[in-house]
């Protein structure tokens, strides 16, 4: 255990140094790629918190990316609010929205929850497409972020990624984390022992919504234009799900590995337009069929390797269903 802590500290120092010198050493292209990795890492980390630890497979997290993006656009373009302030306000709105829809969607479990959240996102898509104030379904360029340097975008994404990882890391080591794992392993036993399932899940959900809002804002700082069908696109969820599946559902390292792989694969597939999601779909299916624990989950089973995940037992993907 001591060994583990030492490893962790060395790793953190190495990562900080690496990310610190990256803007100075790397090319713009590399920097952009790492920025993307950071954003997808943050998204996957949050999706994993819900799907892997809290047993809530959500297919509707794009709702919050869209809200985050639109809040940034509306506040900074229309009202001239500071960009970072707009992003934070967007995240708060996301948290409130998540709280507002939770009484409805928390009644559902398992696949009902998955599709319920998806319907919420689709409903938002239709709503924004019919909203005159946001220019219906037209592209809206976010001109307030136009002159931002690559370095600035990189640091924003880095902060978001670190925040997301840190939140999951700390959360899993608090009482809530213990409660989550208890729910995952046996919901009824946990409830008998006094774990408040609803409250615990709600806490995770609101945190994830808040972070998704931040990520959405940071993401649209880069994209610099927004429209409802890309803002609320299922592609966001595809990315998160993919990263978590190949990385390893219910591990903390999984989303990191998965997000890095996701960005690399999409960059490679960039030269073959339209092929990217086809390949991702195939890879995801193959991984579920052959190694349902993902890369890090399988690695852990074989070698016991883990750095960040707190774990008291070997996780089984199938057990997330018990945590409904």
């Amino acid at each position: 255990m001591k060994m583990k802590k030492q490893n962790l500290i060395i790793l953190i120092i190495a990562i900080v140094v690496l990310f610190g010198i990256l803007p100075a050493a790397g090319s713009n292209n590399l920097l952009q790629m790492v920025t993307l990795m950071c954003l997808y890492l943050a998204m996957s980390q949050m999706w994993n918190l819900l799907g892997g630890y809290a047993g809530m497979l959500s297919l509707g997290m794009q709702a919050f990316i869209g809200i985050g993006g639109y809040t940034l656009t509306i506040l900074s373009v229309q009202f001239g609010v500071n960009i970072y302030l707009s992003i934070i306000i967007g995240a708060v709105i996301c948290a409130l929205f998540g709280l507002a829809v939770s009484p409805a969607i928390f009644k559902m479990s398992g696949v009902y929850f998955a599709i319920g959240t998806w319907i919420v996102a689709e409903a938002l898509n239709v709503f924004f497409s019919n909203w005159k104030f946001v220019g219906y379904a037209k592209d809206w360029s976010i001109n307030s972020v136009f002159g931002m340097s690559t370095r600035q975008l990189y640091y924003t994404a880095l902060v978001v990624a670190i925040l997301a990882t840190l939140i999951v890391f700390v959360l899993l080591r608090t009482k809530t984390g213990l409660a989550l794992m208890a729910i995952r392993d046996s919901a009824s036993a946990a409830e008998t022992m006094g774990v408040e399932i609803y409250k615990t899940k709600l806490k995770c959900y609101v945190i994830a919504c808040f972070m998704m809002g931040l990520i959405g804002g940071a993401q649209y700082m880069q994209t610099a234009y927004i429209n409802p069908s890309t803002g609320f696109s299922i592609n966001w969820t595809i990315a998160m799900t993919f990263a978590v599946i190949i990385g390893g559902l219910g591990t903390m390292e999984g989303p990191i590995v998965g997000a890095v792989l996701y960005v690399i694969i999409t960059q490679i597939m960039y030269n073959f337009p339209g092929m990217s999601n086809i390949v991702l779909g195939i890879i995801a299916i193959v991984v579920i069929l052959l190694a349902p624990d993902g890369i890090m989950g399988t690695l852990y089973k074989k070698t016991g390797f883990q750095i960040l995940s707190p774990r008291r037992s070997i996780p089984k993907v199938g057990e997330t269903k018990a945590a409904e």
């Binding site: 799907g51 497979l57 398992g110 696949v111 998955a114 799900t241 599946i245 559902l249 995801a284 299916i285 579920i288 069929l289 349902p292 089984k316 993907v317 199938g318 057990e319 997330t320 269903k321």
Partner: peptide, 10 residues
């Protein structure tokens, strides 16, 4: 037989 999550994700 691997549970709900893998079937859904496949």
């Amino acid at each position: 037989d691997k549970g709900e999550a893998p079937a859904l994700l496949v």
